[in-house]
């Protein structure tokens, strides 16, 4: 029983990072109706920015987090300006292909600089195991989990309680009608991509510290997982995306523990196919697109 709880807790920790990337992904998708394949690469870029800052500047976690997330923000805005905006009126699949090009560019660009191997990321947070009965949680895990939860709460507040969040939801519902009511659709798109990238950047640093490593192709894994979260939950409620992200982490931890680690990655996709077959709009409904 203690073991089960331990697996659930570990899974929830991993799942919270899936949730942060997935929420950014879902926001971009619902507002711009674009699958931003380069989104996880922004996450990867923040990891490496964090690594550079740690080595060259400071070991202070908060400063590293803010600088790396800002770098992610800049990268996200650049992608929006250079690729997504020119393709606003194109076929749905074209932005997907173009951002895939960006993603290849970034992956190999970072590989060219950092080399193909995993790099060690210094543990810049305290690593103290806390024991409650037979369950062990490290302070590192708790801090990264806390950051993820804070980001998710802030994001939820933004979408539900602020003017720009309201505008974003209006654009996600019907871009044409939102524009008629005076919403600046381009600006909303820009802010959404910026916010998503900033969140992904923060998550990237968290993951790098948690696992103590950074490598140029990490985006592939997170990209796939966050697509699954978004589709299973549906993109109408970002809180649902968060929940599914955490559930997915738990499900994977349980699969690894009780079935086989080689089936871990397939679990997400089997869930995806079953859910979408029954409910093409996801469990909690989607905006029409």
């Amino acid at each position: 029983m203690e073991q089960l709880i331990q697996h659930v807790i570990n899974g929830a920790m991993v799942g919270s990072t899936y949730a942060v990337v997935a929420v950014g992904f879902a926001l971009t998708f619902s507002v711009l109706r674009v699958i931003n394949v380069a989104h996880p690469e922004v996450f990867m870029l923040a990891m490496f920015t964090g690594l550079v800052v740690v080595q060259a500047l400071t070991q202070n976690f908060l400063i590293v987090l803010v600088i790396a997330a800002t770098a992610a923000l800049v990268a996200g805005l650049a992608i929006e300006r250079a690729v997504l905006r020119p393709l606003r009126r194109a076929d749905l699949l074209m932005p997907m292909i173009a951002t895939a090009g960006v993603s290849v560019f970034l992956q190999y660009g970072v590989q060219g600089v950092a080399g193909p191997d995993e790099l060690r990321f210094p543990r810049i947070l305290p690593f103290a195991p806390l024991e409650v009965g037979a369950i062990t949680v490290t302070s590192l895990q708790l801090i990264t989990f806390g950051i993820a939860v804070l980001i998710l709460l802030a994001c939820s507040f933004y979408v539900r309680r602020t003017r720009w969040g309201l505008a974003a939801r209006a654009v996600a519902e019907r871009p044409d009608i939102a524009a008629t009511f005076g919403v600046n659709v381009s600006r909303v798109a820009q802010i959404t991509v910026g916010l998503s990238s900033f969140m992904a950047g923060a998550a990237g640093v968290g993951i790098a510290v948690l696992y103590g490593s950074a490598w140029s192709f990490v985006g592939l894994l997170y990209g796939l997982k966050s697509w699954v979260c978004m589709l299973v939950a549906g993109n109408r409620h970002i809180e649902a995306v968060m929940l599914v992200g955490i559930m997915l982490g738990i499900l994977e931890a349980l699969t690894t523990a009780y079935v086989s680690s080689s089936f871990r990655d397939a679990v997400a996709f089997v869930v995806l196919i079953v859910v979408l077959y029954k409910r093409p709009d996801g469990l909690f409904g989607s905006y029409s697109y």
Partner: peptide, 25 residues
């Protein structure tokens, strides 16, 4: 070497992006 592989795929990525923006159909 690895650098040339990286460079090749970076150029490849840029060309794909430019072609898509140039002719979205």
């Amino acid at each position: 070497d690895v650098l040339s592989q990286s460079l090749r795929f970076m150029i490849y990525g840029i060309i794909v992006v430019l072609v898509v923006i140039w002719r979205p159909q």
